[in-house]
Design a protein around this nucleic acid. Structure first.
Lengths: 220, 220
DNA sequence: TCAAAAGTGTTCCTTCTACACCCATGT
DNA sequence: ACATGGGTGTAGAAGGAACACTTTTGA
């Protein structure tokens, strides 16, 4: 239970919205608290910067170390009284190659049908999804949800899952190739009785600017 | 002097970057601290939400009540030790019709040549300017820097001041009219020996969405 | 030879950019 | 009549959306 500070300052609480993609669904990590599902949370460490504390919360919830992390917004809520400052983050964890959920199936919930949450948690989840969708349009965040190598069809279906709407195959490929963010590998993925797909890799050095996140924020 | 909390939580500090436009220059409000110029700052009140405290800081610095306020980012800094959480805001205060600076000329500094600031303050100012410029492109924030009525030339020169680059008159007018955000008044401004300018008013109900600011943030 | 996903171009339309002259007024 | 800022249109370029068939493979 987070307690407010007692020397005249409000307490500070961190919450993280963790997204991953699994089997064509966008999933959100929720822990089971005393009063139902909640976002992974914690208080900032006194020895580390805020981002490091947020990353630690993600690690604790998922046992995954490398993540994309982005600060969302800071809000003040009346609970616990009198006021608590909640700094919210969004984290993206990439689909593991195997596709298993690390045996933590209870943690992940379909983003389209989250269980009842506190008012604050629900707002933060909704906002995270809004930001994630908006960011697909002008950044390359989607790569952080995919394994290191992937096919264009896989990339497209990640986009479609997040936006929950179909995209045109030719337009999608033209744009993503033109952006210069992809690098073809020599490998092909041959699975199933059909033409094998070219495998691509993300080129981090071609990762564009964001305008949303300040220059000093450390990305992944 | 902001002190850290003593019960294991970091202290919280608010800083506001106040912009206004005056005589074709973009100005930033800076107070004179013991160690040179600083951003207006304060600690969050225990009885009000964060935004209200930020607004109070702006009021104290400028004696202006109605402002556009937008949260920028929350960062953690090592000073004062061990860590302080700094929640930063950007506020826009509108040019007063008279064009005077309310007798607080010492407060306002040209944004193009701010005096030396602390590392944190400088980062926050730079980021605020980045955000303000980016937002000109897809929102109507500029109206918050203008008096309630204005001519298209005044609006354009506000844009040019912020972007510090000239804009094409015809393209600018076409876009801003097409956006539907303006409402013509019956008045004309006749000043100087030339054709009088049509006066426009901002239509708040046509104010578009932001995507940057969460839905629950209260705008102006 | 069939089923299944991979891969590939063109047309249309909308939007952005560049650019120059006439208008209404005060002195 | 002239100086001053207000106001207007068009053509070319670029970018986004819609749309269907051929290719390569495994079974």
């Amino acid at each position: 239970m987070t307690m407010p500070s007692h020397d005249g300052l409000p307490g500070v609480d961190l919450r993280a919205v963790l997204f991953t993609i699994h089997d064509g669904s966008l999933l959100v990590a929720l822990t089971e608290g005393e009063v139902g599902a909640r976002l992974p949370r914690g208080v900032p460490s006194l020895t580390d910067p805020l981002d490091a504390s947020a990353r630690q919360i993600v690690r604790t919830a998922t046992a995954v170390h490398e993540q994309y992390l982005e600060q969302l917004y800071t809000l003040s809520v009346r609970e616990p009284a009198p006021w608590t400052i909640v700094v919210s983050y969004m984290a993206l964890v990439s689909t593991t190659s195997g596709g298993s959920l690390d045996g933590r199936e209870g943690l992940w919930h379909n983003a389209a049908e989250v269980p009842p949450l506190s008012e604050t948690d629900r707002m933060v989840v909704d906002y995270a999804l809004l930001r994630l969708r908006a960011k697909l349009g002008y950044t390359n965040v989607a790569f952080h949800l995919l394994p290191p190598t992937f096919t264009l069809t896989e990339l497209q279906s990640a986009y479609e899952t997040i936006l929950s709407r179909p995209l045109d195959k030719r337009n999608f490929r033209r744009r993503v190739i033109a952006s210069g963010i992809l690098e073809q590998t020599a490998d092909k993925r041959r699975e199933g009785s059909h033409r094998p797909a070219t495998i691509y890799r993300f080129r981090p050095e071609a990762d564009g600017e964001t305008y949303l996140t300040p220059p000093w924020a450390e990305g992944a």
